[in-house]
Design a protein around this nucleic acid. Structure first.
Lengths: 235, 235
DNA sequence: GCGTCCATTAATGTATGCGTTACTGAGGAC
DNA sequence: GTCCTCAGTAACGCATACATTAATGGACGC
């Protein structure tokens, strides 16, 4: 289900370069980058030799990644990279439609100043820049979009809530990247993001919440439509 | 930070009595039962000998329980059972105020028949029974209450959402049990639960959502008040 | 020729050993 | 008397060895 560990990340003492942590991070990145495609069966020893570690830290990483929903440990059968069904995508967007508006509401209640929101503004600028040229850079836009949403989650002041949002975002990451070129150009999206920032600065929690909810709903609907139209079953 | 693994529980083949699973379940139950109190430092070897297993499955359990937020692995320092601060309780109730109303809304949208909701009705009956006598059985009431909320989460049709709810409920379990005798008798609570069930059966998603939100908000407020009034810092 | 059974093999699950690190306590110096 | 240093020890993190299980392929029987 939903991995709770992320709010634990404290980069205080870099004195302990634990192998299991390194394996976890590299394996996770590899999955998100689709270097291990959904449905792929992977072996402990394979990952171990690939990352030059023993099976022990690899197993530990498997457990963590399973709880984050990125892979499944089938006892005695090994590990399979999770593939998302259309139903999974629906679940993810239902969760986000619940949690993200709450997060923005909590953020407004904290009355953040403009400096605290600089990351959000920067993300909006990046999104605009990515779409400005004659050849829109969809990947850059997606990264800025992700950065906006994850920053907002982190800013809300509720670590559990933030961790949950980040976890399901990670689960949906590949699907988003995959459908990026299939969706209409997200031209309205940036304006929606800026409107949310304005509402936050104005201290209007209800408006921020409603705007964010509508934004999330539209995004989810777009993605769902694409999945249906293309008859995608697993991603 | 929110453990995603629970929706994975499939008790299909009981053919593989894995030691790590047994250790995980027993250790988790022990923590929930407060046999390892919050803040306690525990040793891998201690748990291993206690459960007659080696350190390997114990470590695996530690990783899982850390992601569920029930304990913290401090590298090179061992494992500490999580203690909830008032801020943690606030976080948990903010998450539940967001997720539980969504869950009930999703459940209504599925138009469940009366049979599907029998578990909820049973839980209401149990709550009433627990408070009926001259000597109210608070523990029985709390168990029925928990059963109601967890059943509703599971019924909503969104496994990720359900898993998240269950995870934070587990985190708050000890705190709830601890404050049980400090709160006023939950006499209104049962009626609120029944009203939610009625709204579900009536197919009125908005009413069910609002009722559940109000119920959750009141419960959270009650608990927060108790924590403040008694100056509880860790539980 | 096909199906079933057994043996072999390969990968997981568990146990254990080894190296490293951090804590503890004692002893000495200022 | 207090603080700092150092050595001893105990627990963790990782590696590896062993046990267990499931899958695969071949051979035998029908």
């Amino acid at each position: 289900m939903i991995a709770l560990a992320r709010y634990d990340e404290k980069e205080d003492s870099a004195r302990a370069p634990r192998s299991s942590e390194a394996v976890y991070l590299k394996l996770k990145q590899a999955i998100l980058d689709n270097r291990y495609p959904p449905g792929a069966q992977i072996l402990e020893s394979q990952i171990a030799s690939e990352f030059q570690a023993s099976r022990t830290p690899v197993r530990e990483s498997f457990v963590r990644l399973q709880q984050e929903g990125l892979l499944e440990i089938v006892p005695r059968h090994g590990v399979r990279i999770s593939a998302l069904s259309p139903g999974d995508m629906r679940e993810i967007y239902e969760v986000l439609m619940s949690l993200e508006p709450t997060a923005v509401e909590l953020l407004v209640a904290r009355r953040p100043d403009r400096a605290e929101l600089s990351g959000l503004v920067q993300a909006c600028d990046d999104m605009e820049k990515a779409l400005a040229g004659s050849q829109p850079d969809l990947v850059a836009w997606a990264m800025a979009d992700e950065h906006f949403h994850m920053s907002l989650a982190r800013l809300c002041g509720n670590k559990r809530l933030a961790a949950m949002i980040l976890t399901v975002w990670d689960q949906a990451h590949r699907a988003r990247m995959f459908t990026l070129s299939l969706r209409p150009l997200p031209l309205k999206s940036t304006a929606e993001h800026r409107a949310v920032v304005d509402a936050i600065l104005a201290g209007d929690g209800e408006r921020a919440r409603d705007l964010y909810f509508a934004h999330r709903k539209r995004g989810g609907h777009e993605l769902t439509t694409i999945i249906e139209r293309h008859g995608i079953q697993r991603l």
